[in-house]
Design a protein around this nucleic acid. Structure first.
Lengths: 185, 185
DNA sequence: TCTCCTTAGTATCGTTACGATACCATTTAG
DNA sequence: CTAAATGGTATCGTAACGATACTAAGGAGA
């Protein structure tokens, strides 16, 4: 087996390992994926539609997953003030508490134990591969707000930012969250 | 978000991307995973049990997946001469043909386009992470036969090898396949 | 204003995945 | 010769998923 195939095999196995960790505490992989996304996305991106794009799934499936999380009290829906078709999603306190028990923490600890050089090599490789996917039209980057070309930092005083696309002020904490609309500067 | 979290997020997204590619040509992700495994495993490892261990799944689920592949003619079962409880699985010609259409090829091409340095960094990182999993008792390495401590190379002439664990001769082509029993030399 | 199209999300269907449990046949240990 | 372990299958219930159809709200053009 040549080196290329070996790399792909390792990616497949890692993917399977991640999927297999998604069955803890009564939740399913897609439910964990949704919880994690909602914990990291800014308020404009916490919608069923953005979640659908992030997961690369379909809106029917995501609607079902979100409803199941709502039913068990981990997620709440609220009206979107600007658009009555749309829904704003948010984690409940129970949702945040559930994230503390996420089995992906074991992966996080394993990453911590890597040498800095190894971790950086891993990240660079994943970044490059996912970048190729996006370049080929396979989704959106979902990058951090702060690195977006529509981000105006400290435009209204220190720690008071602004999104030029959505014409909305941004708190400092939001600048580190991921966004559906993000485009690299 | 610190560097560690960023790496984990990229792994999650890669895992999801791989899972999403598994819905092509009327098959499901688990079915593709099974096909790929059966194309790379040596004859001792092409059993429902070994596949269960490789996928980190349960035997009931795997039994069902294998039956679905058998029903559509991509996989065949045969008796295991040494143990009548056990079953030997093999891809049919249609199964091999289906693999040619595997969407994971797009990932393979993306890996091809990486610089050698980036690819090696990616592979080293994945190798280290999966190694930690195995060290923690989370599965078997499923490494290549040739690199196993039970492998006796060219023990019976050039290209005629032998497995000291299973007491079986090994053809040259089998030395490059993966094995349920493999332990690093 | 009145259409027509688009967008955001839900409802439903059929197949598969998956863990869990129970079960059967065969092999192996004592 | 029995008891335990092993390799698989059968079945159940929940969730995932693509597909399709649907509702409601927003937007564009006459």
């Amino acid at each position: 087996m040549d080196a290329r195939n070996r790399t792909v095999e390792l990616i497949e196995r890692m993917a399977r390992a991640v999927a297999n960790e998604g069955h803890a505490h009564g939740l399913k992989p897609a439910q964990w994926d949704a919880l994690r996304y909602l914990s990291r996305a800014n308020r404009f991106s916490r919608t069923p539609g953005a979640l659908t794009a992030y997961l690369g799934s379909t809106k029917g499936t995501v609607s079902q997953t979100v409803m199941s999380l709502e039913r068990v009290g981990l997620v709440e829906k609220a009206a979107n003030p600007g658009d009555r078709r749309s829904v704003r999603l948010a984690l409940t306190p129970a949702g945040w508490a559930m994230l503390e028990k996420d089995e992906i923490e074991t992966l996080r600890h394993a990453v911590d134990e890597l040498s800095n050089e190894t971790r950086q090599g891993l990240e660079a490789g994943l970044d490059a591969l996912l970048g190729k996917r996006i370049a080929a039209g396979g989704g959106r980057p979902f990058g951090m707000c702060r690195t977006c070309r529509h981000f105006a930092g400290d435009s209204d005083g220190p720690g008071r930012h602004f999104c030029r696309l959505l014409h909305q002020p941004l708190a400092d904490a939001e600048a580190g969250q991921i966004c559906y609309e993000q485009e690299a500067a």
